[in-house]
């Protein structure tokens, strides 16, 4: 399974829907996507990971990189994830404290800090 990526605009936020496996091979594609969005002025991102089957530390690194980029523009990067096997790596690495993680895209779109 490869990585699938699609984006759509919801108000002032951009939803990035990710599917498949995010690993050392596919992570650069996600990285490019996030860089492209920030370059085109999209600073409030919601990354929907409900269809992600696998996420490793390389993928985490890309998400951290995305978070740093949007923060540089006072933006936000919210994650949508309810899958235990994906959430586990966020917990192990302590990144649950860094990323706002939501149970649905609607919840992420409605969220404010």
């Amino acid at each position: 399974m490869d990585l699938s990526l699609s984006t759509r605009t919801e108000g002032d936020r951009t939803v990035v829907t990710v599917g498949g496996e995010i690993d050392v091979y596919t992570a650069p594609k996600l990285r490019e996507q996030l860089i492209d969005l920030v370059s085109s002025g999209k600073y409030n991102l919601v990354v929907d990971m409900e269809s992600v089957d696998f996420l490793d530390s390389t993928g985490l690194g890309v998400l951290v990189g995305g978070l740093k980029r949007v923060r540089a523009h006072e933006g936000s990067l919210r994650l949508v994830c309810t899958q235990e096997r994906i959430l586990k790596i966020f917990r192990i690495t302590g990144l649950t404290k860094v990323f706002p993680i939501h149970a649905s895209v609607d919840e992420a779109l409605a969220a404010t800090d």
Binding site: D56, S57, T58, G61, V62, V64, G65, R69, R71, A72
Partner: peptide, 24 residues
């Protein structure tokens, strides 16, 4: 957290520190 005025966004490394995978 980065300030918005720098050129840092482009130069930020995406890789987590070496050893991170082993920590996982």
């Amino acid at each position: 957290a980065l300030s918005a005025d720098g050129d840092t966004a482009e130069s930020l490394p995406d890789l987590l520190p070496p050893g991170f995978g082993l920590a996982v």
